[in-house]
Design a protein around this nucleic acid. Sequence first.
DNA 1: CAGTATCCCGCGAGATACTG
DNA 2: CAGTATCTCGCGGGATACTG
Lengths: 109, 109
Amino acid sequence: MKKISDFNGVCDTDCPVARANDIIGGKWTTLIIRDLLSGKKRYSELARSLAGISPRMLAARLDMLCGAGLVAKTVYPTVPPKTEYELTDAGKRIEPVIAAMAEFGSKLR
Amino acid sequence: MKKISDFNGVCDTDCPVARANDIIGGKWTTLIIRDLLSGKKRYSELARSLAGISPRMLAARLDMLCGAGLVAKTVYPTVPPKTEYELTDAGKRIEPVIAAMAEFGSKLR
DNA sequence: CAGTATCCCGCGAGATACTG
DNA sequence: CAGTATCTCGCGGGATACTG
């Protein structure tokens, strides 16, 4: 088990915590990941679950996550169209982060 | 052990993940917490470790964390002045989040 | 259904100078 | 040393309308 102090100190260029924050730091990213943790989801399912997100934002974050290799997108060229998003193996490594955040957040007054 | 799926679903009003994100979602917050995890720190120590942060930002984030009850501030009315910041018990509950982020971030290409 | 296309706005954040 | 005081700005993000 890695000690937290292993990650302490100056980290201007490449701190693991900073890099993680660059990915999941956005307003919606963690919520999208949370939704995808329970399995493959369609665009409209995510839009419904993430009440309040604009289509533009949802598309942008999903695009970023795909680009980072954390989410995979499958497009079915049917009419009407259907796309599905799911976490890649790399993306599933975010689960402990979300779980820890949920645990912390639930204890917040 | 809580299952991650317990945190899934619509969460417009009060999702634990969203609440945690509101706290640690900022650009510098996680890095400040990371530094404080190894113990009490002075303002200037933090400023040095967090290379690039402006005094205004550092003060603002520390103030927010104090307001949230996650960080405690001690001022020694000496000349020159000396202040120390440390995590409260509530603040220490963020450690698992930072640890998970570090773990995830270190595996990111 | 699954997005784009536009337009717009506020706030997070940076830079610099100054002070108790 | 430990901060404020100003000024500035980019971009994350929101709203709405439209389309393959």
